[in-house]
């Protein structure tokens, strides 16, 4: 679905700022994520959503997420990389698919510091995040209600898992 969409109106800088705000909010409300990550919180994770236009670099400890144009060389420096389609990332985050199963089947691929990826996967799995709820909470009423409806419609149309299932 994303391939057919025009390039996002957001510049990488704006996308990074919005994502960092989301990340800070998630870290604030789920302190267990950083404690589970332990020393791996300092790792830089390259999130390569292959059907999205931007590469994301996540730094949990610094609570920073930056977006980078796929075409812009070189790839930002990182300690670990996770690559896969958006559907796989969303299904894993929301508990509808098992991360190992996605990995065994090749739907997700990892490179670099395997320990850090494992720690991140386990920390996020325990946090039971719900992206729709997180986005909703960032918006002011009545925008939150509109957002919830839009996410539900998007989930129906795209088949993406946009809120928590387990």
């Amino acid at each position: 679905m994303l391939r057919r969409l025009p390039a996002p109106p957001l510049s990488p800088a704006l996308a990074g700022r919005a994502l960092s705000a989301l990340l800070r909010r998630i870290a604030r409300r789920n302190p267990a994520i950083l404690s589970r990550l332990g020393p791996h919180g300092a790792a830089r994770f390259l999130i390569d959503v292959t059907d999205a236009p931007l590469l994301l670099l996540m730094e949990p400890q610094a609570q920073r997420m930056t977006a980078h144009r796929r075409s812009a060389a070189p790839v930002p420096g990182h300690d670990a990389a996770i690559r896969g389609r958006l559907a796989a990332f969303l299904a894993m985050l929301h508990g509808s698919e098992d991360g190992d199963a996605l990995f065994f089947s090749g739907e997700l691929a990892i490179a670099g510091d395997t320990s850090a990826v494992l720690a991140l996967r386990n920390a996020l799995d325990d946090a039971e995040l719900d992206l729709t709820a997180e986005l909703e909470a960032l918006a002011r009423p009545p925008l939150d209600v509109w957002l919830r409806r839009m996410m539900a419609a998007a989930a129906r149309r795209s088949g993406y898992v946009l809120s928590r299932e387990v």
Partner: peptide, 10 residues
């Protein structure tokens, strides 16, 4: 025990 909550639930 190293698998996700999705695995456990299913």
């Amino acid at each position: 025990r190293q698998r996700s909550r999705a695995y456990v639930a299913q």
